[in-house]
């Protein structure tokens, strides 16, 4: 179980993480979504005891990251977003080195390493030098490395970034297997649909703040009350912009790139929408079409990270 309490990290005047509060239950998969620089890696680095927080704390399986960092390290398997490998070490030696670093005996390591290589489909690469492995293989090897001491909690920072579609699918399959093994997994990505399939819960972080949290369907549901409306005009776009901007329940109005249409988020119901269209026509706006756009997960993410706080 992971419990994050008022976790804050500041670099001078810049706040990378702003009072983050989060609880992740044992055996669940939590997806952390946010744009680059939103604070995901900062959170993960703090949880991995690689960065001290400015204030607040976190507990991993009951161990405080501030007062018991060594105990925390034995509980977690950490995979950073960018990582290097040692040249001239073979795959087996790479895992053996980290196994020894966790104090696992040689005989245990000899049993464990083939199992881990099998889990990440690298058995045939056991005698290959690590630096000649492909990006996807290195990612899988790093995942195996993070599992060598059988941690209960996995902290995986963008494990599928930079991978080709096939490697992404392979990585996803491995993570599903780990989920079935009962591991608590905290995983980050800046691509929401990538996480939706395997996560029990997701949290959306923006500018260091957790702006939404819940299951994928819950988060989509929260936006259900809002619609994305696109209005196409024959002429008079600026006039239309002025009109819609002044209307209640309209937000996030922008002109579209085609130069003839605009879009906005509308929080009114169907009746309100009819009234809005009537009023627009009464203003003699040359409306060619007035339509509601279906939102997908990407739209949800884009809308949420615009600054609309939903929690």
């Amino acid at each position: 179980m992971i419990e994050i309490i008022d976790l804050t990290k500041q670099y001078g005047k810049f706040t990378a993480l702003d009072c983050l509060n989060l609880t992740i239950d044992k055996g669940t998969v939590f997806g952390f979504v946010g744009q680059n620089g939103a604070g995901k890696s900062t959170t993960f680095s703090i949880l991995a005891t690689l960065l001290s927080p400015s204030s607040g704390t976190a507990y991993i399986n009951g161990f405080n990251i501030r007062s018991e960092p060594k105990a925390v390290r034995s509980q977690i398997g950490y995979m950073p977003d960018f990582f290097g490998v040692y040249d001239q070490l073979k795959t087996v030696e790479y895992l053996d080195f980290y196994g020894a670093s966790y104090g696992i005996s040689q005989s245990e390591r000899n049993k464990l390493i083939p199992q881990l290589l099998e889990l990440v489909n690298l058995t045939d690469k056991q005698d290959s030098y690590v630096d000649i492995l492909s990006r996807g293989m290195k990612q899988r090897l790093c995942l195996a490395r993070s599992l060598i001491h059988d941690p209960e909690v996995l902290i995986l920072d963008e494990p599928a970034s930079g991978l080709d579609p096939r490697a992404r699918v392979e990585m996803r399959e491995i993570l599903k297997e780990l989920k079935n093994m009962g591991k608590t997994i905290l995983i980050s990505s800046h691509i929401l649909p990538e996480l939706a399939e395997m996560c029990d819960t997701i949290g959306i972080i923006d500018q260091g703040r957790l702006v939404a949290q819940g299951s994928v369907s819950e988060i989509q549901q929260r936006l259900k009350g809002e619609k994305l409306i696109v209005v196409k005009l024959q002429h008079g776009l600026d006039e239309a912009v002025r009109f819609f901007e002044d209307q209640p329940m309209v937000s996030g109005l922008v002109k579209r790139e085609d130069g003839h249409s605009l879009q906005f988020i509308y929080s009114g119901d169907a009746e309100d929408q009819v009234q809005l269209l009537k009023m627009a026509l009464l203003q003699n706006l040359a409306i060619v079409s007035f339509s509601e756009i279906e939102t997908n997960l990407e739209d949800v993410f884009m809308e949420i990270t615009k600054g609309v706080e939903l929690t």
């Binding site: 680095s45 991995a48 005891t49 690689l50 060594k70 390290r73 034995s74 977690i76 950490y78 950073p80 960018f82 990582f83 290097g84 490998v85 040692y86 980290y98 670093s101 966790y102 104090g103 790093c142 490395r145 001491h149």
Partner: peptide
Amino acid sequence: EKQTLNILLTTNQ
């Protein structure tokens, strides 16, 4: 610089 230190620091060593 090689980005191997962070991983090493999360071990029990």
